[in-house]
């Protein structure tokens, strides 16, 4: 990797358990992420990957265990939640852009209302970000006028506009046509090299092999195995990991 990884933990999950009613969705999940690390989370559908990364910015509540993000423990305290949401950006499978706002307004919304920046300064920064993800010329369009790949890049710019220290990706390329996957992965690759902490749920194994510092395999709500990509791909310790990899590679 091009940037050094700090020794300091930015995300600490200890014995996290979550239930949806009777359904045990997360079972004793433990994970420590260092500042600047890029983590790829993968596993079968329904294994709790989305649920897990959504507990990190409290889109889902966990019932047991501790989650500490950037030194702040997730509790029901609304101020902590707001602080953490300001420090974490999230990119969704379905983009979730705001269809009634232009691309530029999508990107400047949170800086203006949450960070209380002026419209002018937030727009300058937004244009920079849109340039970084390669769609500056679309700034005045509405999301509905863009292709899926372009929309997802806007979503990334929107998340970056809050200058987050952590980026969460939930299958960012799963809803895209094959020819658009690359343009989004290119942006993510560039981000991974920039030193920001990233948690990516993805099945793009080429991306994982290339940029991930560590990979986490989840199944049935548990972390089954974690390790560096080289080890996960060539000598997975668990049979379930091996079986899953053989199915998707």
């Amino acid at each position: 990797m091009s940037h050094p990884i700090s020794t300091e933990d930015i995300i600490i999950c200890e014995h996290v358990n979550k239930w949806y009613g009777d359904y045990h969705a997360l079972r004793d999940v433990n994970l420590r992420v260092k500042k600047g690390e890029v983590i790829v989370i993968f596993g079968p559908s329904g294994s709790g990957k989305s649920t897990f990364i959504r507990t990190i910015n409290r889109l889902e509540e966990h019932q047991e265990g501790r989650i500490i993000v950037d030194g702040i423990e997730m509790t029901n305290d609304i101020r902590n939640i707001d602080t953490i949401r300001r420090e974490t950006g999230m990119v969704f499978q379905q983009f979730n852009l705001f269809p009634h706002l232009t691309v530029l307004e999508n990107v400047t919304l949170a800086p203006i209302w949450v960070r209380k920046q002026t419209r002018a300064e937030s727009e300058i920064r937004a244009i920079e970000l849109l340039e970084r993800v390669g769609i500056k010329e679309q700034a005045r369009k509405f999301p509905g006028q863009l292709s899926g790949g372009q929309q997802q890049r806007v979503a990334i710019a929107r998340a970056l506009a809050m200058s987050p220290r952590i980026l969460l990706f939930d299958e960012p390329t799963s809803a895209l046509d094959p020819e658009m996957i690359k343009e989004v992965l290119d942006v993510m690759r560039e981000l991974a090299g920039s030193g920001i902490t990233m948690l990516c749920v993805t099945h793009e194994m080429g991306f994982a092999r290339e940029v991930a510092n560590r990979m986490v395999f989840m199944d049935k709500g548990q972390v089954v195995e974690e390790g560096v990509p080289a080890q996960i791909f060539s000598e997975p310790r668990q049979d379930r990991t091996r079986l899953f990899l053989s199915q998707i590679l």
């Binding site: 949401r85 969704f92 979730n96 705001f98 919304l109 949170a110 809050m162």
Partner: peptide, 20 residues
């Protein structure tokens, strides 16, 4: 997903309702 995206950006309930 709309409300989730707004909340993930740090908008509070009031802003999410009013703006999104």
């Amino acid at each position: 997903g709309q409300a989730e995206a707004a909340r993930a950006l740090g908008l509070n309930m009031f802003q999410t309702t009013l703006l999104i």
